[in-house]
Structures are given as C-alpha cells and as structure tokens.
Amino acid sequence: MAHAMAAFTEKVVAEVIEVQEFPDMGNSYQVRGVPLTVINEKYSFTGAANEQMLLDHLKNAISQAHEGES
C-alpha cells in the first residue's frame, strides 16, 4: 500500500526491507513482529494495514511530528 502511495507522489518514499536478509536492520529497529511499519524513523506500528489504516497512521505520524516541533 505504501508503494501505491509512492507511485502517486514522489513525496512518499516507500522502502520494503526483507528483515531476514538484513538482521542488523531488524535489530536496530527492534523488529519483534512483521510487518513492522516505521514512518519518518519515529512513528511505528506492527501488523498489516489496509489503505485507510495506513492513511490514518500517516496522518498521526505527521501530526505528532508537528506537535514535537512546537
């Protein structure tokens, strides 16, 4: 779903990481379950997300980032 968003706009960068191949990344992001989604290196959630759920998480992540700035 993130890929579909990235296909719509270059403002979204979507990266899928096969964690068994890069266990060091799994450790540094503390991956305990998959899929784990990390937005802008700060906001994360575990579990499959449909379009609406990902959109809600995206809005939350951006909103939290703005709150942190103010």
Binding site: K11, V12, Q20, Y29, P35, L36, I39, N40, L58
Partner: peptide, 12 residues
Amino acid sequence: LTDEVLIKTFVT
C-alpha cells in the same frame, strides 16, 4: 504533503 515522508516496512 509538503515534506517528504519515508515509510519503511519490515517484512519476512
């Protein structure tokens, strides 16, 4: 969106 958003998804 005005700023870039990076979405990383870790999978197996």
